[in-house]
Simulated scan of single mutants.
Amino acid sequence: MAWNVFRFCTGLRIVGSIMIVVVLAIVAVSYYAVVIASYIPQLLGPAASFHDIILALLVLLLFHALLFMLLWCYFSVVLTDPGSVPQAWSPAMDEDLEAEAVPLASAVQPGLGINLPTSLVHSLPHNSKVRFCKKCNHFKPPRCHHCSVCGRCILKMDHHCVWVVNCVGARNYKYFLLFLFYTFLETTLVTLALLPHFIAFFTDVEEDSGSPGKLAATFLGFVLNLAFALSVLGFLIMHASLVAGNSTTIEAYEKKVSAKWKYDLGRKRNFEQVFGARKSYWLIPSYAEEDMRRLPALHGLDFPCKPDVGGDEL
């Protein structure tokens, strides 16, 4: 018997729940190291100079502002449904399949285990418009994929992320990107803010720098934030290229993206299909109502294509 790795996918849900605790623990360590152990004492210290006070205020204000945005975006990703296939949804059919598939579309209900006609089963995977998920027992919209961890089809699925205990798809991809963006800014700020204390940790410049607990938190906070800043930067660069080409991680992995990728409408329109057209909403995990009405791609069911480019659907 072949070993099926997907049998263990449900275990990733438990891992994901643990990862939320890990994220909050890293935030707590960083908060203690920057605010409590370092810059509050610098701000309130009796020997603090004007320069020290201004620097401490600037670091504390930026730290709390970025932390607020980071947590807002993070929990938006965690709590927002990435998008699932509506029960009544059915695709536009080719004429040669319409007579056979349309009656099926009206009969299929999730979980009923309806057997597909043999001719349709063999036709669907190779048809550019009609796709069917045998696990969920319903038709699949364009760019939709089945997640073995969530156990359902996800609209414009990018990947399943254990860090957010959720899939990243059409309706929370922007929130995920903003989470990466604010995480990079926050971890970079913490790294730079703790760098002088980290250097002093090894040079013994500050003999009365604090208790062993504060020193340990400062050391750990610097190392963790430096590591996350470097790793998140790589993810940001990768996803920036995906947004610019209007593709997902799955589509890039399956090597379906090329110079003639049919969803690539130009960088500006590609960007708007993720972040919307209203500039005032680009940096917050929300969409303008006007964008939700005007841009169907934000809902994950219908995507404009280049008129002169074909290609197989994923």
Rank of each mutant, 00 (worst) to 15 (best):
L43T: 00
S49L: 03
H51Y: 15
V223G: 02
A216V: 06
R143W: 02
W261P: 04
L224E: 07
K156T: 00
A277L: 09
L60C: 05
C73E: 00
W282I: 08
V130A: 14
S84H: 09
L220N: 01
R131A: 09
L224Q: 11
N172V: 03
Q42M: 14
E207F: 10
P125F: 10
A240T: 10
G83L: 01
P285S: 10
S241M: 12
M238E: 14
G310N: 09
K135D: 06
F139D: 07
K129I: 07
W3A: 13
A193G: 04
S280D: 13
S38E: 07
T191A: 15
D81K: 05
S211T: 15
P125S: 04
E272P: 01
P91D: 07
F303V: 07
M292E: 11
L120A: 07
L224V: 14
R131V: 02
C136G: 03
L189S: 01
F68L: 12
V205L: 11
V15F: 13
C136H: 06
I237P: 05
W72V: 12
E100P: 06
Y173K: 07
V223D: 08
P212K: 08
I284Y: 06
L66V: 09
S247V: 00
P82M: 05
T188R: 00
V168K: 00
L71I: 15
D312Y: 12
K156R: 14
A193T: 01
E313W: 06
T248D: 00
R278H: 12
E98A: 15
G11T: 04
F68V: 14
R267E: 11
L242T: 03
P110E: 15
M238S: 14
V78T: 07
K156Y: 01
A259T: 10
K306D: 10
N270R: 07
V27R: 01
H197N: 09
